[in-house]
Design a protein around this nucleic acid. Structure first.
Length: 254
DNA sequence: CTAAATGTTAAGCC
DNA sequence: GGGCTTAACATTTA
């Protein structure tokens, strides 16, 4: 569920709920004033990175699915209590499970900058480059997961983009040549859209080159895997195909 | 059956 | 208070 493209798919699936008015709301979230929700119409349903946003007149409900969250549209998950459940006067219901739900107060545009969302039409490569240059003494595997720069990029996209560009995950962002840095920004978006298309076709895993893979599809040697960087997330890479820019750092394998 | 995973946040410590 | 580390949460799959 969690990476940006999956949230975009959700937003598209529920588009028809925009404009409907909440008739009943419940759930086991502790942060939501459920009794205030009935009567409020949905002004918009959208995503920002991995956030799913339900914009209401009084505030916006922010749903984050973390690792294991899920949802059901016009149906319910058996044996699971929804964290947030919304029924509508016009009919239909939305149910969200094991996710984090919060209120976002004030204007959405104040809380979120869509120029930083890799899936947004407002995505700004220039702004991403600027952010990268401002804080570039970090590993490539870390900057890609930085939601302040690449909102929506998750661990799968990280691994695949680095392989695609033949960049070693422990390359220093500051040591990447100009062109590589630009490609990184370009592919963070490009790959995310391919991810979405593959996911819609139920063939996402088929396209994984290195994520959860054992052997490099390009040169056939065994892939490396380790928890790398500040983020300590699973990283898969080919030591032969992916060039390391910047100083070498010891890697503890798993 | 156990472990690990598409992620983030809060608490705890120095 | 800051900056860092650890724990917590939750569900499905291998």
């Amino acid at each position: 569920m969690p990476e940006g493209p999956s949230i975009v798919i959700l937003a598209e699936q529920v588009r028809a709920f925009e404009g409907r008015t909440i008739s009943a709301a419940s759930g086991n979230s502790k942060l939501i004033p459920f009794d205030e929700l009935p009567g409020q119409p949905i002004l918009s349903l959208r995503s920002w990175g991995k956030h799913f946003l339900i914009e209401l007149p009084l505030y916006t409900l922010r749903v984050h699915f973390l690792m294991f969250g899920s949802y059901r549209i016009d149906e319910r998950k058996e044996g699971a209590a929804p964290r947030l459940s919304l029924q509508f006067e016009e009919g239909g219901e939305l149910n969200f499970y094991s996710c984090s739900v919060k209120l976002v107060e004030g204007e959405l545009a104040r809380a979120y900058d869509w120029r930083g969302d890799v899936m947004s039409e407002q995505w700004s490569p220039r702004l991403a480059l600027k952010k990268l240059r401002e804080n570039s003494e970090r590993f490539a595997c870390d900057v890609l997961l930085d939601q302040d720069i690449f909102a929506g990029v998750g661990n799968i996209i990280k691994n695949e983009v680095l392989f695609r560009l033949h960049i070693h995950p422990l390359s220093m962002a500051s040591k990447l040549p100009q062109g590589k840095l630009r490609e990184l920004v370009k592919q963070a978006r490009q790959y995310s859209f391919e991810f979405k298309a593959w996911k819609l076709a139920f063939e996402l895993k088929k396209h994984w080159q290195v994520h959860n893979r054992a052997v490099c599809p390009r040169c056939n040697i065994k892939l490396h895997r380790a928890y790398l960087g500040l983020t300590q997330r699973r990283t898969f890479w080919c030591e032969r195909c992916q060039k390391r820019y910047g100083d070498a750092v010891d890697v503890v394998k798993i």
